[in-house]
Write a protein that binds this DNA or RNA. Structure first.
Lengths: 215, 215
DNA sequence: AATTTAATGTTATAAATATAACAAATAATT
DNA sequence: AATTATTTGTTATATTTATAACATTAAATT
């Protein structure tokens, strides 16, 4: 088949569009213009149209996009038929927040387990998700078909945990730790680094303070 | 003065480099090569050198970069002399996790307050940071000189809260909600969207499953 | 039915970012 | 001291991403 991959930024925006579209749907809206979608996301209408061009969807021109149809197309791009299974590694403060956060959202991404080295947490449930001992990671990743890991362990454990996960066949990692990770090519790694995000804001806020210029 | 702003991606990496450099320092390392730093961050040595070129630092060539000096230069770029004050808006699960997370790190970014609409939380402390009623946001943002907001309120309150914050003079917002925000030009907004990050991973994991290609 | 209008779809261009190529510099070696 | 090896600093090129320009389409209007 050799489907050409979409640009990374387009994939990100599609995920964002879908959420807005679901909102529109909930409000009973059946059609939406590119400039409306653009307004919601603070980008240009051209950007929206270009993204939608990439996924090959065409509207019944002039009435805007059919909300329902567009959602369906985006779903076919991002989601798998049976969903992907996700697990949280490290059920500390952050791990709990992340678990809580996800349980609230409807999504094709199912949190099926949490893991912690603290044996006393094993067997307990949090937000309706069972917590397992980190010792059993290997069998459970296989048997529960976990393909994506949310890494919320303490920084000191990040590298070691990652090695284990990759060894067990994990295919994607969302790294919440501030430790830079090295992963093989077939594993998709996404950094989710609060400190960097904040320091970036700090840089531009500082710049703004100094010279009263625009970003 | 009209200092040219650095590329956004460079600012991000500088923040990351600094953390690695602080680690090196802690290990007693005095110099580091571009390719070492690159290895740690899984990027190319050229990228590192180019970033460092942007900030105008030059090493005593051939010995690599002086760790201490480089840290100092990065600090002068990102940090302000007296630091920037940060506050968490919405002390729910996520707000607590974020607060906890930051208190652990040494940084020029000081969490000086948390806010919540729940009056019963007001007056309490969490992680040594005082929680205030959201009613008092206006005076406190001024008196505590809060310039950056970490937005961890529920999605439904995101837009309204943002309006208030901007009105009160906030200069930077790190948006943890999944609600897209519109802010004026002089406010620096950074999206921190877990759902999008995860769905992006899902897309590439799915693509990898289908055709056994490389990303 | 012809015209106007306001939207999309697409090709062309610009800007931002990353990579490559290579000269300059300096420590180590002969 | 000359040579070699290795690393930086910088200019040139490629890739990715965003924007602009404009032809095309279909609803609305005359």
């Amino acid at each position: 088949m050799r489907n050409k991959l979409l640009p990374e930024k387009t994939v990100e925006r599609l995920s964002e569009y879908r959420r807005s579209l679901l909102n529109c749907l909930a409000q009973g809206r059946t059609h939406i213009y590119s400039h409306d979608l653009a307004g919601i996301h603070n980008i240009t209408a051209v950007q929206v149209r270009r993204d939608i061009m990439f996924i090959g969807y065409t509207s019944s021109q002039r009435k805007g996009y059919d909300v329902n149809e567009l959602i369906t197309v985006i779903r076919s791009i991002i989601d798998t038929d049976d969903g992907l299974n996700v697990a949280v590694f490290g059920l500390g403060n952050l791990g709990k927040a992340v678990t809580h956060y996800f349980k609230g959202k409807r999504s094709r991404l199912n949190i099926v387990a949490t893991f912690d080295i603290d044996e006393s947490k094993a067997g307990q449930e949090y937000e309706g998700v069972k917590c397992y001992s980190m010792n059993d990671y290997k069998e459970l990743i296989k048997s529960l078909k976990i393909s994506i890991a949310l890494l919320t362990v303490p920084g000191a454990a990040a590298v070691e945990t990652t090695t284990k996960l990759i060894d067990a066949g994990i295919e994607g990692i969302l790294n919440f730790t501030t430790v830079p990770l090295i992963v093989p090519d077939h594993v998709f790694l996404e950094e989710y680094d609060m400190i960097t995000s904040l320091e970036k804001i700090a840089y531009y806020v500082k710049a703004n303070k100094g010279l009263k210029d625009r970003k």
